[in-house]
Amino acid sequence: QVLLPPLIILTGNYNFFNALTIVLAFSLLDEEHVGRWLGRPKKRQGSAWPPSLGSVLATLLELSTYGLLLYWTVQYFGLEINWDKKLLDSKVAFTFHEFTTWLRTVTLPLVGVAFLSLFWEILVATPPCACVRGCFWKLWATLQWAIMATATVSLFAVSLVRDPSCRSPPPFTYIDHESNGKLWPGIHQLFGAVERFQVVNSYGLFRRPPRVGGRPEVVLEGSYDGHSWTEIEFMYKPGNVSAAPAVVAPHQPRLDWQLWFAALGHHPPSPWFSALVLRLLQGQRDVIRLVQVDESRYPFSARPPTFLRAQLYKYWFTGPSEGSPGPAPWWRRQHVQEFFPAVSLGPPQLESLLSQHGLK
């Protein structure tokens, strides 16, 4: 988990949440892993030869596990080396039905193994409570152990439940609906009691990456007469097809980011988008600076536009063979549909949209 975010940073234009993930992941490292960084001497362990039977069996078990994982990966994902093209080819060698059947078979047993592992860790943490001197401190240590153990078991339990009303359901039994229904009812009741606090959630920035067939983007357009329209270019998001993608990390351009999410949604524009249009029509400088810090790049810096509308496009990177005379464009795009109708400050259409969302 510590190495994954840097790889994402190197291969994608992501922002500060990768740094946050790295910080959180460091807290999961064992002291033995970071002892050298902290300047602590490494404990010397006596090397016995020949090794004990237990260590030999543990090593064989570990090697067997790695071997089975490698074998199953090759078998079920059809890994083959294409020596002619010097590529590693792969294809899924199982059906969707086989996959769901396998999930249904292993989900609940894995939950049981996880519970046993957790209880073992709790039991291992029990003896130190009795090693503390003094009755009061023993009682205090036992109380701390009981609170932490209860909280840990409770969090683990509620993280298994899938609630259909939850917008971002917890991760594990969500992958198999039937297994979710077979969980002990008390776990469902516990989840219902704490669900409003959102103490558990699915892991991952994009657990289900959107399959959109191109990058959807909202393009704002302004006009003084309602006939001749000028695109409003943002500092970071794709707009002008000749503009290179901006490198923003670790900065988080919230407005550009939210506009991309708005473009992904198959529903009417979010309430905040109507408010954005209103502020741009009013010419509010604070909002304009979210679009363009350099006012010379904002086409309506001298006078706010009379009309604003938004179009939905899909963007793709251009390939080497798509060049044209002159500077090669970075993007090609295709118009999809109107995203937001043309509005102005006079007619009641914009006022009606704002009132619907409680913004007026």
Rank of each mutant, 00 (worst) to 15 (best):
L10R: 10
L10G: 06
Y14R: 12
T21G: 11
V23T: 04
L29Y: 04
E31N: 13
E32H: 13
H33G: 12
V34E: 07
R36E: 13
G46F: 15
G67C: 03
L70D: 05
L79H: 02
E80L: 03
N82P: 05
D84N: 08
F99D: 07
W102S: 10
T107G: 04
L110F: 03
F115V: 15
F115D: 11
L118H: 05
W120R: 11
V124H: 01
A130F: 07
C135K: 15
A141E: 11
L143F: 08
W145N: 00
I147N: 05
A149K: 05
V158T: 00
L160Y: 00
V161C: 00
P169F: 01
T173Y: 01
L183K: 03
W184F: 11
G186R: 05
G186D: 03
Q189E: 02
V194N: 04
V200D: 01
Y203L: 13
P210N: 04
R215A: 10
V219E: 03
L220F: 09
E221Y: 14
G226S: 06
H227Y: 15
H227L: 15
H227E: 14
E231K: 14
Y236V: 09
G239Y: 02
A244F: 08
V247L: 13
A249I: 04
R254M: 13
L259Q: 02
F261Y: 12
F261R: 13
H267R: 15
P269A: 15
S270M: 14
F273H: 03
S274A: 09
S274F: 06
A275S: 09
L281H: 00
G283N: 02
R285V: 13
I288E: 06
L290K: 11
V291Y: 02
R297I: 09
T306H: 12
T306E: 11
F307A: 02
L312N: 04
K314G: 01
F317C: 08
G326N: 04
W330H: 11
W330C: 07
P341Y: 00
A342L: 03
P347S: 09
Q349R: 15
S355L: 12
G358W: 06
L359S: 06
